[in-house]
Nucleic acid binder design. Structure first.
Lengths: 210, 210
DNA sequence: CAGCATCCGCTTTGATACTG
DNA sequence: CAGTATCAAAGCGGATGCTG
């Protein structure tokens, strides 16, 4: 990227991570941990392969990403964040938080990958009655099921099916996420094709305040 | 900007504010408050005027910036942040914080404007002994002097000369800012041409922890 | 197959000139 | 003051080819 040529902290940050795709590569590595080149391509639908290679080189050069040859028998290259790259997490989280209202629009050709939703869920939900027994919600949307679980005051989402969930939400990503985060009500979500199994009242337990 | 086409909160945020120059325009409005077109151009050296016009239109369209005709006798157009635009402040602050280590490099052709430095100073400094009488430091670098003042536990920087400062730092931006934020020591700063008037020990009072 | 590099057409950006 | 118009250069997207 061409430098802004400003002696300004924000401008210098954008000199380094302001290029197209760059922060999304960082997102993949913060959510998924160390990734192969192919994993990154899968998590960044639409990126041109030469651009991914370029960006990875730049990120390596600026000390944000580290490339390591995984030990045998894996024998593949792994890309991961350096400590300096990890320090981008607060900024990525604030941008993610700011973008949440935009999730109320799901365009027909939007790709949906479950691990992107997990990042948003972890940022937004809290267990409002942690003294009560834990609950589990399963989301069936995107490319994989998501298990949302209360655990000592927090709410954690992870890939994979939940064992015996208290509630299962199935449908389009906007309907499922909108219902979980309280952006739309249950009636509206059902009108969009949401179906559920279990007691939807437990949604109140994890929904964000305000 | 072309959409990433991902149903992901970060990607959708970047669809809106990921274009080149866009976040720097937001920075100008967060630091300076309502601005005229010409003020923005001054605070964004190097931007092409057609790009500034384009970006302002887009920002208006996405609900981040509001354009208002100032009442007579000013009779000029003012651009300011909407509440939704103000909500970008945490993200801008985190990016600014992340970029601070990059300020240890000042390139010869970097533009320096004092209000950019103010944003960094406000983020980093705290008054470590608020019970003692307030102190004032004047910085002479960039296009205007900066007054750094302790006030009820916080440290605030503002444009304009300080009245009777306890310490004055004069020199290149890197030397002045580096000294104030503790990125370089006094000897190193003097070797870079820093000069000062007053007792440099008061720097310890405001310097960041860690 | 993983991890790129090359080529080409298109879009975005940059620099400058001009206008109500 | 607050832009629009124009055109060249750089960046990006998509397809394809190469190498261990």
């Amino acid at each position: 990227m061409r430098s802004y040529g400003e002696y300004c902290s924000l401008a210098k940050a954008l000199d380094v991570i302001g290029d197209r795709w760059t922060l999304l590569i960082v997102r993949e590595l913060t959510i998924q941990g160390p990734c192969r080149y192919t994993d990154l391509r899968k998590g960044l639908p639409g990126i041109a392969t030469n651009l991914l290679a370029d960006r990875l080189r730049e990120l390596e050069h600026t000390g944000i990403v580290r490339r390591e040859d995984a030990p045998p028998p894996i024998a593949t290259t792994l890309f991961s964040l350096t400590p300096r790259g990890e320090e981008l997490r607060p900024a990525v989280e604030e941008l993610t938080r700011w973008g949440l209202p935009l999730m109320s629009e799901q365009r027909p050709d939007d790709a949906v990958q479950s691990h992107w939703l997990i990042a948003a869920i972890d940022l937004m939900l809290t267990d409002r009655t942690p003294e009560r027994p834990p609950v589990t919600i399963e989301l069936r949307t995107g490319d994989h099921p998501i298990a949302v679980e209360t655990a000592d005051g927090a709410v954690r989402a992870r890939l994979g099916p939940a064992g015996d969930p208290d509630l299962t939400l199935t449908g389009e990503a906007r309907a499922v996420l909108g219902t979980l985060l309280g952006m739309i009500d249950l009636a509206g979500a059902r009108a969009e094709g949401l179906s559920y199994d279990g007691d939807p009242k437990i949604l109140d337990r994890v929904r964000p305040l305000g």
